[in-house]
Design a protein around this nucleic acid. Structure first.
Lengths: 359, 359
DNA sequence: CCGCGCGGTCAAATCGTTTCGATCCAGGTG
DNA sequence: CACCTGGATCGAAACGATTTGACCGCGCGG
């Protein structure tokens, strides 16, 4: 019980050895408060003789009442969540900003959709704030667990949560802009490849009833933005923002679904990964882009492997979003009342969209 | 000073309200030790009346002497490190296994190569063990910082470190196998696209002197494996395992570097991302794969966007590697002496390698 | 009838640090 | 020479929990 000689030296032992009080020794390390350089050196010398490696973070945290840890709830296992460059870039901005304040990021796997149990880390891990990067469902078990524990929450890209700052993107306006671009090029038969709807991941065309279930953000916002301009001739739902799902969807949409004469002349996808999959499917079907079909994405990712095509996409400031999330966390910890914001997005035309083919 | 009425209720207050001692109240929550169901309910009731949300992790951690946190040092900012699916998959396996023990993963950005300062988290954050996933340099400042703090370390994919278990892959054998495959197909003019060498990232052909500087793993191991079978006609060094770098390298190697008659007939890349870039470059140059040039990668990633090509690659059990790292961490915490291992790898032929073109 | 053992409860010691307020001392001022 | 000021140091009280060993009835076997 700590009586073993092998247990690490403590500040008290260092102080004793240096012939000063514990409080003074603490001062020598924390740097705050007045202390003679001479005394400090004495303490530091004693510390190094004893092999003391600096104040124990656990003691410090308890005393301070802060862990210096920010829990980041990722949508799923990292293996899936981080296959999406969008999540990665947001995380990057977040880590960067939090790093400037010495805050660390603790990775918390979100719920396995369909499971009711949440990760034990959510219930027990020490964290000063939690960030929900990937949106919030209605009746989100993750959010509930955090609120039960009174952990302050910052929400990225979801519906607003009582008392929690929200950092969003102007999804709806962006989606509308992308579709307007297609309409201006003359397209009328526009197909939509959508992100997951929420609970119950599936793939395939969505009917009106199913469309009404899309409660996850940003899916719902992007759907709304598209419909602000035009009604898609078909909406193909996917289980995740991955290239292979976009490819599967577009293979159906462009291939067997309808006779060639009624084939959609343009596809708008909810994400660049889905759009890239659509581009690949079109290539495989022998269609020229954008002569036969136009394809627009959403995210503004840099996808060198899609070469020579460059996606027409809606650029989002993703690292900036992560950074804003970080700022919100910091403000929250400083006791300030942080404000929600929506970051602007903008269409960046590439080579994958062009005038509607003359028939 | 905790004298404010707004401060959270503590176990002591709950105990007082329930009319029991603090120790009994603790028992009611921790579940260990004998306690009458009746008493437990009394405590739980008092807790919910007071809005007590369970034992404060900070207090618990201090008492236990454990934080339940595993620091994972990623090579760089997440934005760069996680663009590599290899790192992501390893992390995935790691998080999964640690999760079963209630251990959380704290993300720690590695050093900015060239900077001498390490991330403050490395110096101050609470962690029971640290994992270096992405290899260790000789004289690694990150490793030094951890050793100075007496934090136990588990190393993935690097050189062995005194007292730290190592979880590696049979890189050398795998690389040799890939090249042997090319040689058996008749290739003799084989070019190598390599991972970063270590400090000082650059891109371009590497001369003998430069080759000697490759001290980072797994680069060094893969280079050695390749040379166990054949000497590459050229080694092109890249600053990171990214598609665009592979593309740039292959554009040079296959294009302008030598007259077409002396052009390498095969390329072996140290990673699948680099190899994928090479495939794209070959396509852009109008070369057929594998008729004009064979390309082999390393990692065994699933790259749907490379369709219709499927990379010939050396499959690595990446999630398994992460899981083993996790096990090593758990063993270390249990006081057992964990052992180092090297996981087997195996060649998986795809469509990107074929017989040497007849000239 | 006595003592033993056992399940449930409690008191007290720790874990290692930070910080508030008090103390002490040297040096400058009236 | 006494007083005051301000900087350096110190003591002690938190911070919030876990855990050990003692304690205390009570039921049962001898």
């Amino acid at each position: 019980m700590g009586r073993t000689p092998s247990s690490r030296p403590t500040l008290a032992r260092v102080a004793e050895r240096a012939g000063v009080s514990v409080s003074t020794a603490s001062l020598a390390f924390s740097g705050s408060g007045p202390i003679t350089p001479e005394t400090r050196d004495k303490v530091l010398a004693a510390a190094s003789e004893l092999g003391y490696t600096g104040p124990n973070p656990l003691g410090r945290q308890l005393r301070r009442g802060r862990s210096g840890i920010v829990g980041v709830v990722i949508g799923d296992h990292p293996g899936r969540a981080f296959r999406d460059p969008v999540a990665v870039q947001v995380l990057d901005g977040l880590v960067d900003v939090l790093g400037t304040e010495g805050l660390g990021v603790l990775l918390i796997p979100g719920v396995d959709l369909g499971q009711d149990a949440v990760d034990p880390l959510l219930e027990t891990a020490a964290m000063d704030v939690a960030v929900l990067v990937w949106g919030v469902l209605s009746e989100d078990p993750t959010l509930n667990a955090l609120q039960r524990r009174n952990v302050p929450v910052v929400v990225g890209e979801g519906r607003a949560v009582e008392g929690a700052p929200l950092v969003a993107l102007e999804d709806r306006a962006g989606a509308a802009e992308a579709v307007r671009h297609l309409v201006e090029l003359g397209h009328t038969r526009i197909a939509e490849i959508s992100l997951p709807f929420g609970r119950g991941e599936r793939s395939g065309p969505a009917d009106a009833e199913r469309l009404a279930c899309a409660d996850r953000t940003p899916t719902a916002h992007r759907m709304a933005g598209i419909r602000d301009v035009v009604d898609p001739v078909i909406t193909w739902e996917t289980p995740a923002s991955l290239v292979e799902h976009g490819r599967d969807a577009a293979t159906e949409i462009l291939g067997t679904w309808v006779p060639a004469s009624e084939r959609p002349t343009a596809i708008v996808a909810h994400s660049d990964l889905l759009a890239a999959g659509a581009v690949i499917a079109a290539r495989e079907l022998g269609l020229s882009i954008p002569e036969d079909v136009s394809i627009a994405g959403f995210d503004g990712l840099d996808l060198p492997w899609l070469s020579p095509d460059v996606l027409t996409s809606v650029h989002q400031p993703l690292r900036e979003k992560g950074a804003r999330l970080g700022r919100a966390v910091i403000d929250l910890l400083a006791g300030e009342e942080p404000t929600s914001i929506a970051l602007p997005v903008g269409l960046v035309p590439g080579t994958t969209t062009g005038p509607v083919p003359r028939t």
